[in-house]
Simulated scan of single mutants.
Amino acid sequence: MDRKTAVKRLPTSCPACGGALHVQTLACAECETRIEGAFPLPVFLLLTAGEQQFILDFVACSGSLKEMASRQGLSYPTVRNRLDEIIEHLNTLQHEKYQKNR
């Protein structure tokens, strides 16, 4: 992928200190209305690009690991393990988010 076709990823941590980022301003492209506040990033956006793509593919396969394995040319156990790793990562992220909001 070259620079012109590269997809920009929303940064989730500060490049200066590594702290968590949050959305502060939302803007309408049509009427230029702006809304300001502290909006936390959804947990899904904290996953890696590969994890996000896996979830999108999983939903497109109607949650069928067998179909995922077939489409990706992988074994069922490999796809199952990948899903388990993503579930574990999501649980960790949600636990961390909960701990920060206490």
Rank of each mutant, 00 (worst) to 15 (best):
E67V: 01
I86Y: 00
V59E: 02
L45Y: 10
R71D: 03
E96L: 14
Y98H: 13
L26H: 09
K4C: 07
Q24C: 14
S70M: 02
T25E: 10
T48W: 07
Q99V: 05
L93H: 05
G19N: 08
F54K: 12
A60D: 02
D84T: 05
C28Y: 14
Q52N: 10
A29V: 15
L56Q: 03
R80H: 08
I87A: 15
K8M: 13
L65A: 01
L83R: 01
K8G: 13
N101K: 04
G19F: 06
P77C: 05
N81V: 05
M1I: 01
A27C: 15
Y76V: 08
G37I: 15
L21Q: 04
D2H: 01
F39P: 05
Q72F: 09
I86M: 00
S13T: 11
I87V: 15
G18A: 08
V23F: 07
S75R: 08
V23R: 05
Y98W: 12
E51F: 06
T25F: 03
L41E: 01
H22D: 12
C17M: 14
M1Q: 00
C17H: 12
R102H: 03
A69G: 03
S75D: 06
F58T: 03
H89G: 08
F58Q: 02
L46E: 08
E96I: 11
S70K: 03
A6M: 04
S70D: 04
L46N: 04
C31F: 08
E96S: 13
R82E: 10
L45V: 09
L41W: 00
F54T: 10
Q72A: 12
K100C: 11
A29M: 15
S75I: 05
G18P: 04
E88W: 09
E30V: 11
G63V: 05
S64C: 00
R102F: 02
I87F: 12
S64W: 00
H89L: 06
S13G: 07
F54S: 11
V43E: 09
I86P: 00
L56N: 03
L46I: 04
N101E: 10
L26Y: 09
T12F: 04
K100A: 14
R3S: 13
G73D: 11
R102N: 03
G50T: 11
S13W: 02
I86T: 00
Q99A: 02
L46P: 01
M1F: 01
V59I: 07
L47M: 05
S75H: 06
A6D: 04
F44I: 15
E96A: 15
K100V: 12
R9F: 13
I55H: 00
E51I: 07
R82P: 06
Q52L: 10
V23I: 15
T12R: 09
L47E: 03
